[in-house]
Amino acid sequence: MNFPTTCPECAREVPAEFADSLIHDLTCPACKARYVVFVRKQKFEVLFDLGTRALLEGYAREAVASFAAALERFFEFYVRAYALERAADAALDFEDALSALDGTWRHVASQSERQLGMVALAYLLREGRSPDFLTPGALGSDFRNRVIHRGALPRREEVEAYAARVFGLIDRLLTELGPGAAQVELAQERAFAAHLATVPEGVVAVFEEHPGMFRARRFAGPEAAVKGTPDKAPTPPLNDAQAFAWALAERGAGPGPLKRR
């Protein structure tokens, strides 16, 4: 998926393709200026936005694949957040903790069932209760498998229901994580800083924060998460489908990327 960037030298719009690292070394085709764009966004957020765009453009089956991948990557995000949160509580060195976490994750990186096991244990240790969201029904596993593995062609309303289920689960766990999510954000910032240190003199660094389905709800305060009025406390959405529908509408009307020089 491409996203627009603006050349800091000539202000020409230059399309860029999302990179796995969310670090983009670019050259303007017009003035040949070099610049690097750092996108402050987690991979699960990018994948969910991919699914949202596919759904809005009528590619229902492709949307399911992106929503399913977003959930898997969010589970990795959750495990990382918990592990780094515990390391911070124990006053362990952040780089050592991150290195140990990366080494541990390699053992399960290609095995989704083992990843679910790590999520289950992390949730139990953090919240003190069994993860009620890891059942096939809660995850929408049957629908996902029919579409991805058996080639089913889903109707749009089925995809919207699946997306609402995934959205509701991620949003709930993000809320429960609260400040714990900041540890993974810090890991991303450190990766950005390491790359920035290698950027040659004269290459402009641009940091962007893109609007997204979860980012506004997680970072913009309570008014972004639920509707309300100044003289009345906001009322949470009644169900996941409502929350997803509201966020989808906000995503469609959201502002462009925020650029920082």
Rank of each mutant, 00 (worst) to 15 (best):
L134S: 05
E201K: 12
G256R: 12
A19N: 09
G128Q: 06
C28L: 02
F167I: 04
R251L: 09
S112N: 01
A100E: 14
A11M: 11
A91T: 06
M1P: 02
V14D: 08
C28D: 04
R155M: 11
R114P: 00
A220N: 07
T104W: 10
A194T: 07
R251H: 15
G51S: 12
P8C: 09
A11R: 15
V36S: 01
E209W: 05
R146V: 01
A197W: 11
D171Q: 13
R53I: 11
D93S: 03
Q115C: 02
A87P: 00
L258N: 12
A193I: 04
R53Q: 14
F18Q: 04
W105T: 02
R260Q: 14
A197S: 12
F207Q: 09
L139S: 04
E209H: 10
A97S: 07
L47K: 07
A163Y: 15
I23P: 01
C28A: 01
A109L: 07
V184Q: 12
M118E: 06
A164G: 09
A224Y: 04
L196N: 00
E13I: 15
T175L: 13
Y59H: 12
E185I: 03
G254Y: 04
G202I: 04
Q188A: 03
R86P: 00
A16S: 14
Y59F: 14
L84N: 07
A81L: 02
A91K: 10
A69F: 07
V46R: 15
L47R: 08
D102A: 08
A19H: 09
R12I: 06
H107D: 11
